[in-house]
C-alpha cells in the first residue's frame, strides 16, 4: 500500500501544483498509515529540488533523471510512469490537472486499463474498505459527485489551486532512489524543435482583492462591459461565467470556475449570475461574497454573505454613478 504523486518539472523549478499534491497526498497517506512517494521525471538539474520534497511531506522520492527528460515528450514520460506503476502497484496515483498532467494521466490510464477521475477538488477515504472517494463537480448545475474506481492504482487528476501548498519541515527525513532507465524507454515519435515562453495574459484575477463578476443576467455585452468601469473604481478585476465567455461578451481568461480560474479575493460581487457549482468551485478562497440577482432563490443568493435582490440593469449603473460621485468629493 502506498500513495504516489507525480512531481512536475517546469524547466526551471517544480510546478506549484506539486506542493499542493503533497499537501493532500500527505493527508491521505496519514489516514491510510501508508508512505507517500513522489515520482519525479526530469533532467539532472531537477535533482536537488526534487530531493527537497521530503521536507514538504514525501517519505520517498523516486528520481527518473536524464538529460533527454528535459523535454516533455508524452510517449517517453508515460512509458516511464506506466512501467513504474506496474512494478510498484501503489493504491493511489495523483497528477495535477496541468497541461502535462492532462497529457500524461490519460495515456497511463489507457495503457494500464485504469479508471481516471478528472479535475478532482476533494478526496475522502471510505472507512469500510479504504477506497479513495474522488469528488468533482457533476453534470448538473449544483451538484458534486463522489466517484470511486474499481481498478488500482486509483488514479485522479487534481485541479490546481484548490489545495494549499504543503508546509516545509526541515526535520523531515525520507528515502531518495534514482531509477535505472533502460535505453528503449527513450524511443519517441516526438521531437521538440523549439520552445517559446508565452506571456501569460495577466488580468490579475487570481491576485485581485476585489473581483466583480457577471453572468447571463447582464443581458448583453454593453451592460457587461460596465463591470470594467466598476472594477476600475474598486481597483479590482473582472470575472465571468462560462456562458458569457462563450457568448463573446468577454474573453475566456476572465472565466471563474472549474473550467476557469480559482480566485481568493477579499470581496467578490456576482451580478446576474446564478452561482452554479461549476462557477462556485472557483470562489473557494473568497472572504465576502455579495450577490446581486433578481431571483432570491438563485444558488448564489443562498450562498452569499450579502444577498441583494435587485435588477442588475438598474443596480449596476447606479452603483457606478454613486462610486464616481464619491471619488469626486
Amino acid at each position: 500500500m502506498s500513495i504516489f504523486i507525480f512531481g512536475e518539472w517546469t524547466g526551471t523549478d517544480l510546478h506549484d501544483s506539486t506542493y499542493e499534491l503533497l499537501y493532500e497526498g500527505r493527508r491521505l497517506a496519514d489516514i491510510l498509515h501508508t508512505p507517500l512517494t513522489v515520482l519525479f521525471i526530469g533532467p539532472p538539474e531537477g535533482k536537488e529540488k526534487a530531493e527537497e520534497l521530503i521536507k514538504y511531506g514525501a517519505d520517498r522520492v523516486l528520481l527518473a533523471l536524464d538529460q533527454r527528460l528535459g523535454d516533455f515528450r508524452d510517449d517517453v514520460y508515460s512509458r516511464i510512469v506506466t512501467q513504474l506503476l506496474s512494478k510498484e502497484q501503489p493504491e493511489v496515483m495523483l497528477f495535477a490537472a496541468t497541461a502535462m498532467g492532462q497529457a500524461l494521466a490519460p495515456r497511463v490510464a489507457g495503457t494500464l486499463r485504469l479508471g481516471l477521475t478528472a479535475h478532482c477538488i476533494g478526496f475522502e477515504i471510505r472507512p469500510e474498505d479504504k477506497a479513495l472517494v474522488q469528488i468533482r463537480p457533476s453534470f448538473g448545475e449544483d451538484v458534486m459527485a463522489r466517484i470511486i474506481s474499481r481498478t488500482k492504482p486509483q488514479m485522479a487528476t487534481v485541479r490546481p489551486g484548490i489545495f494549499p501548498k504543503a508546509p516545509k519541515d526541515d526535520n523531515r527525513t525520507g528515502h531518495v532512489e534514482t531509477l535505472a532507465l533502460e535505453e528503449d524507454l527513450f524511443v519517441s515519435a516526438l521531437e521538440i524543435l523549439e520552445r517559446q515562453e508565452v506571456p501569460v495574459k495577466d488580468i490579475s484575477l487570481k491576485k485581485a482583492k476585489v473581483v466583480v463578476a457577471g453572468g447571463r443576467g447582464l443581458q448583453n455585452k454593453e451592460l457587461f462591459s460596465k463591470l470594467f468601469e466598476l472594477a476600475q473604481l474598486l481597483h479590482g478585476a473582472v470575472g465571468a461565467t462560462r456562458p458569457v465567455c462563450h457568448l463573446g461578451w468577454v474573453s475566456e481568461e476572465h472565466m471563474i470556475g472549474v473550467s476557469g480560474a480559482t480566485i481568493s479575493p477579499k470581496l467578490y460581487i456576482g451580478f446576474g449570475l446564478s452561482g452554479a457549482l461549476h462557477h462556485m468551485v472557483g470562489l473557494k478562497g473568497a472572504e465576502t461574497i455579495v450577490a446581486v440577482n433578481k431571483d432570491p432563490e438563485a444558488p448564489l443568493m443562498r450562498r452569499a454573505h450579502i444577498a441583494i435582490q435587485a435588477d442588475v440593469r438598474e443596480f449596476l449603473p447606479l452603483l457606478i454613478e454613486r462610486l464616481k460621485g464619491l471619488n469626486k468629493k
Binding site: R113, L114, S138, V143, T151, R302
Partner: peptide
Amino acid sequence: PTQVLDVFHPEY
C-alpha cells in the same frame, strides 16, 4: 472502472 457513488449538494 469509474463509478459514481452518489451526488450531493454542497452545503454552505
